[in-house]
Amino acid sequence: MSQPNAPSLRVAVLGAGSWGTALAAAASRRHPTILWARDPAQAADMAARRENARYLPNIALPQALEISSDLDATLRSLKQDGKTPLIVLSVPMAGLATTCAELARRLPALGLQDTPIVWTCKGFEADTARLPHEIVREALPGAIGGALSGPSFAREVAQGLPVALTVASDNAGLRAATTQAFHGAALRVYASSDLVGVEVGGALKNVIAVACGIGDGLALGTNARAALITRGLAEMTRFGVALGAQAETFAGLTGLGDLVLTATGDLSRNRRVGLEIGAGRKVADILASGITAEGVRCARAALERARAVNVELPITEAVCAVLFDGVAPMTAVSALLARDARDEQSDGGG
C-alpha cells in the first residue's frame, strides 16, 4: 500500500524466471516496471506473446510491463522521470554473485550506486556456504540491500491469489520502498530487520522439504511429516540463532510459514525431489530430468556452515547422506529414529 506523499517508484526486476516474472507483473500494476531476461530470445518471445511460456505458461503479462534483454538499457530506464529507483534481483542463488559483479561495473557509471537492491534467492552458496547478503555486500560494498522472502509459489502470485511476504533489511528506506512496490490487493508485505533470520529460514526450509518429500515417498505417514516439520523448525531456529538471527523470526512467514508451504505444497520442487527419492528413483536421474531444487543445491553448504559454528543439523545431515553419500532413504530415516531421547527445548539438536 502506498504511503501518503511517498515518492513514485520505477522498478527493474533482473531475472525472468517464474518468480521474477510474477513479481514484475505485480509491480507493474502499481509502478513503471521493466523485467530483464538474460536470454534475448526469451525476452523477445515474452514481449510478443505477453506471456512467459517457459516458466509461467498460460498466464498473461500486464501490457504495462516492459521486457528487455539489454541490461544497460534496463538500468538506464531507472533514471527516467525522476522516480525513485528500486532493483529487484530475482536470479537463482548460483547466479547472484555474477549478477552483482555486473551491477558493480555498471551502477556507478550510471549514477545509480545508491539504488536500493532487494533479492529473492534462497539458500547457501554451494562453494562458499555464504548467505545472499554476504555475497551482495562483498560484490557491492555499501549497497542498500535486503531480502524479499516468504511462503510463495510464483504461479499463485502471478494468478493474483493471496500471498504474504516479508522484506528484511536494516535499512528502513529499503523496507519502505519494497513494501510500496508490491503491497496491495492480494499481495501483502510485512517488514523485518532480521535479515539473517529471514535468509536462514528461506535456505533451510528447502532442505527440510526434501526430507518431508522423502518421508511421504516412503509412505511414513502424516505423523512423520508433522515430526519432520516441527523438528526441522527447531533445526532452522538453532542454526539461525547461532548465526545471529532472532529466534522469533522462525515463528513467522519466512520460518514456519515457508517451511509448511514448501514441505506440503504440491507445487514445491524440493518436496517433489524428495517424493521421487522416496519412491525409489536415483538422485542423479531425478536431477537429470530437469527438476531444479534449491534444497539439493545448498544442503551440503548449509551443513558445512553449521558445523563451523558447532550446530547439529540431524535432518539436514540425513538429507545430505541420501543425496551425496549413497545412503538408502530408509537407512537415513532409521538413523534419525535411533537418536537418543532428549528434552524438546534442548539446544543440542535432534
Rank of each mutant, 00 (worst) to 15 (best):
H31I: 02
A158K: 03
V283P: 15
Q3F: 01
T316H: 07
C100A: 10
T262F: 14
T99V: 14
P57H: 11
A191R: 12
G326V: 09
V311M: 03
T237D: 07
L267V: 03
I67G: 11
I286V: 13
R50Q: 04
S289E: 15
I277M: 08
H183W: 14
A60T: 04
V198G: 07
G213S: 05
A209R: 15
A301E: 00
E344Q: 13
H31P: 03
A176R: 12
T254Y: 03
F250R: 04
E317W: 07
G349A: 01
C121G: 03
G15H: 06
G278H: 00
P141H: 12
E134H: 04
E276D: 14
N52S: 08
P32W: 02
A24H: 04
L256E: 05
E304W: 07
R297Q: 13
A6V: 01
D45K: 12
I277A: 05
R225M: 12
G240V: 04
N223D: 08
V327R: 15
A26I: 05
P141N: 12
E102H: 06
A211E: 08
A6S: 12
D325Q: 15
L103M: 11
L233C: 15
A97R: 14
L165H: 09
G326Q: 15
T179Y: 10
G295E: 07
I67E: 04
P141Q: 11
L336Q: 05
D127T: 10
K83Q: 13
A308Q: 11
I208N: 09
Q42L: 09
N223I: 00
T316E: 09
P314G: 09
G215K: 00
A301V: 00
P7H: 04
A299F: 01
R272K: 08
D72Y: 00
V88N: 06
A209H: 14
R269L: 01
S268H: 14
A226Y: 06
V157M: 09
A203K: 14
I117M: 12
G160P: 02
W19Y: 09
E294H: 10
H133K: 09
R130I: 07
R29L: 01
Q63S: 07
C100I: 11
L337T: 14
I144V: 14
T21R: 06
I286R: 02
E138Q: 13
A164C: 15
S68Y: 04
R38C: 08
